[in-house]
Design a protein around this nucleic acid. Structure first.
Ligand SMILES: [Zn+2]
Ligand SMILES: [Zn+2]
Ligand SMILES: [Zn+2]
Ligand SMILES: [Zn+2]
Lengths: 145, 145
DNA sequence: ACTTGAACCTCTAGTAACTAGAGGAATTAC
DNA sequence: GTAATTCCTCTAGTTACTAGAGGTTCAAGT
């Protein structure tokens, strides 16, 4: 039993991680996953390490991290001391980003709610919703960018 | 003074709408703006109608509408009767979409807040933040997709 | 009229993070 | 042995722009 690790095909890995097959190849190309061993027929075969790494990536993505930050976190594997502060930075940045996006979407929600309710639905001549889409003067906030 | 409308260069239009010059060309290519008249030297010259149309597009984009929906709204210019219901549909859809995104971002915020606070910052050996990024088992919700 | 500098032109390629499809080879199950 | 499934590479498409190269036109000043 020496050297006989469990090996997975790309499809196995996909099922276990719910990451689609082309996405796994994409991650390899982008350097997030190391190039795996191949069979004699050139098909990829992965081990447990790759599985764990892909699960890590998947979870980070689910948390909304951009791939660049996932790369940053992956590079901290085995790090110690102040190098690990980088993980905190990434988390804080993502959190700040998230809060910013939420508050922006909330002001959009305010505006769209108003716009949606602007029209009585009697479309004799014009639609107040359509008009409101083009008219910023009734908006409360600036909601640009 | 017959036929002498005020005309704008693409730069003028850009300044008045705060839409960048390459973006204006892009909108033209995508059919959101009609091809304008040109000078003898092939430069674009716009009129008030184009200005208004671009302001409309800009505001819709600021409200988060995808270009496809902006196209849909633009096509309602001059429409009447039940055709205008389409504007309501677009508004409702965008609102639903927005609310969905907000609630998703909010659950991400919950998880990231927890993850951020997981580590005491003493990085003797490991970082709990780094660990938490890879571990879904501590998460409250599913937060996938 | 001439010159200069800003603004304009087209075209290509790059961004983020995949996804889809073509055309063909390998693997697995029966 | 053969058929179904999975795999391979490569290209291109998605969204909504943005950046740059290389060249032309316009507007203002002299
Ligand atoms: Zn209406
Ligand atoms: Zn507005
Ligand atoms: Zn830490
Ligand atoms: Zn999780």
């Amino acid at each position: 039993m020496l050297g006989t690790k469990k090996m997975f095909s790309i499809g196995d890995l996909s099922r276990r991680t719910r990451v689609k097959v082309p996405t796994i190849r994409f991650y390899e190309e982008k350097g997030l996953l190391p190039r795996p061993d191949r069979t004699a027929g050139n098909q990829r075969r992965y081990d447990e390490t790759a599985l764990k790494r892909l699960l890590f990536i998947r979870h980070c993505r689910d948390l909304g991290l951009p791939l660049a930050d996932v790369v940053g976190l992956l590079s901290l594997e085995g790090a110690s001391g102040t190098d690990l502060d980088r993980a905190h930075e990434i988390a804080e940045k993502q959190l700040a980003d998230l809060r910013d996006r939420i508050s922006r979407l909330q002001s959009l929600e305010t505006e769209l709610t108003r716009i949606s309710k602007a029209c009585d639905g009697k479309h004799d001549h014009v639609c107040a919703v359509l008009h409101a889409f083009g008219d910023h003067s009734e908006c409360k906030g600036s909601h640009s960018n």
